[in-house]
Design a protein around this nucleic acid. Structure first.
Lengths: 149, 149
DNA sequence: GTTCTGCTTGACGTTAACGTAAAGTGAAGA
DNA sequence: TCTTCACTTTACGTTAACGTCAAGCAGAAC
């Protein structure tokens, strides 16, 4: 359990509902970094690239669950080989959507279709690569048999 | 049909079996580049990185089907987000295998297992990403409905 | 107070994967 | 012979995605 803050005892009912005891969790940059096994530098860089926009408390960055999810999506995108620019393109869809006009919404559907096709291509590449791996393994085991019969 | 070479007429039986008319196809660097929609520079770079080792006829590079397949595998690896170093690691398996000793062969099996796990992770990432796309599309269409009911 | 942490902003460095420009070669066609 | 064309090497340039200091601040601990 974390030690109680030095400001105001727990028992006092909070005048600000945002500061309730069982509030949504927040994270410092270091916590988030450790959580995802990246460096704080990486997280700041993603912010600079428009992928994150954490709250500021004084000069410190405060990350909420919303930001944590965004970071997770970003890292997943990276594993899929997307550039940060491409990832931002998708991430911004979330922001654009609520108040997007019809033209923007149709544009989003276009991008989605592209990404979908991309995913299918990747799945095919994976399938072929797995075949390659199977092939190499088979021949490798055969070579081992040949060595020690 | 390609024009006959200026050296020796076709009718003459070839003294070198390597130069038979219906020989295995070869490619110049430009042909291969166009074939895969990359630049010659890229192909030379892959050679420099140890991914290709084409035959030399004079100063020119001559690519055979073996090289074409390697390039195809390399580009597929790239689409999967592997670095050239990682791809080389796999490609070298082919070369190591024929005369590999038991220890090398077991090492190969290790690497194969790693790559396999990697593929599974990628498949999972793709699955999650497709879910995301589905989600965005659903909400996007809902927003469109809200605009023009 | 001072010391220690964990954060902050800047600024320059690094690596991978090519791009690009320059200058030369060699064979084939006009 | 001259030109063209596709190739060659060499070498410096570029972009993305961070890494790596440096110097400084703010609050908690001592």
């Amino acid at each position: 359990m974390p030690k109680p803050s030095h400001i105001a005892p727990q028992a006092t009912p909070p005048d600000n509902p945002e500061e309730t005891v069982s509030d949504k969790p927040t994270y410092a940059i270091g916590e988030l970094a450790e959580m995802f096994e990246v460096t704080p530098r990486t997280i700041r860089f993603y912010e600079q690239e428009g992928l994150l926009a954490p709250e500021r408390r004084g000069q410190r960055r405060i990350y909420h669950d919303k930001d944590r999810v965004r970071l997770k999506l970003t890292l997943r995108g990276k594993r899929l080989g997307f550039t940060l620019a491409e990832i931002r393109e998708v991430v911004e869809l979330y922001d654009t959507m609520p108040d997007g006009n019809a033209r923007q919404l149709h544009r989003i559907l276009e991008i989605l279709a592209e990404k979908r096709a991309d995913m299918e291509q990747r799945k095919e590449d994976i399938r072929l690569m797995q075949n390659e791996l199977d092939d190499v393994e088979t021949r490798c085991r055969a070579a081992l048999e040949g060595l020690a019969p």
